[in-house]
């Protein structure tokens, strides 16, 4: 019998304690923000959408190999010796045309593994996180800057230089680059 009354007393007491806590919170300022109107500043290391600075890309394919979900597609064309593609901002010489540098951002898992191996620090994760699209195709980002004409030009030049190399008595081991 004593237990019965103690239970009732405990129930009332703990309910009142709980009500006091929620009542106190009724008047504490909220911790949430009005998101699209107010935005928090993301920390400097925030890992969101990838960005590739093509001016610095040397087409080394290391980011593509580091990617655990294979979302980066890179194709390269060798440049001929008469063309100077310039140097990157860290001073390494560019030797490859990069006609295709696609990132399927829909596949990307934002792990950041592609960022670390890049020798020229041209691929990085930005603070942009609002990039939803209605079509999934729009999430395949083409970073390559070459126009189709330039690609054809580069391919033709390479083919020409290889054919001239092939006519010369050159070492047989030198295969054609597709």
């Amino acid at each position: 019998m004593g237990r019965y009354f103690k239970n009732i007393f405990d129930a009332v007491r703990t309910i009142l304690i709980g009500m006091r806590i929620t009542a106190r919170h009724l008047f504490t300022p909220s911790v949430t923000i009005q998101y699209p109107d107010v935005k928090l500043k993301l920390p400097a290391r925030a890992r969101n959408r990838l960005y590739v600075n093509m001016d610095d890309c040397i087409g080394c394919d290391q980011c593509s190999m580091a990617c655990p979900v294979n979302c980066i597609t890179i194709e390269t064309i060798k440049s001929t010796s008469d063309v100077d593609l310039g140097v990157t901002s860290v001073g390494s010489k560019k030797r490859l045309y990069v006609p295709v540098f696609d990132i399927d951002i829909a596949k990307c898992c934002y792990c950041g593994l592609c960022v670390y191996p890049c020798p020229t620090e041209c691929i990085k994760m930005t603070e942009v996180f609002e990039f939803s699209e209605y079509e999934r195709e729009n999430l395949i980002y083409n970073f390559a800057t070459m126009t189709p004409a330039e690609v054809d030009d580069a391919k033709r030049k390479l083919a020409a230089s290889e054919s001239t190399a092939a006519t010369k008595p050159a070492p047989a081991s030198r295969g054609t680059n597709s």
């Binding site: 405990d10 129930a11 007491r13 703990t14 309910i15 304690i17 709980g18 806590i21 929620t22």
Partner: peptide
């Protein structure tokens, strides 16, 4: 502490 008094020791 608050969690304990709001939930842990609540009779229900």
């Amino acid at each position: 502490k608050e969690l304990n008094s709001l939930l842990t020791h609540n009779k229900i």
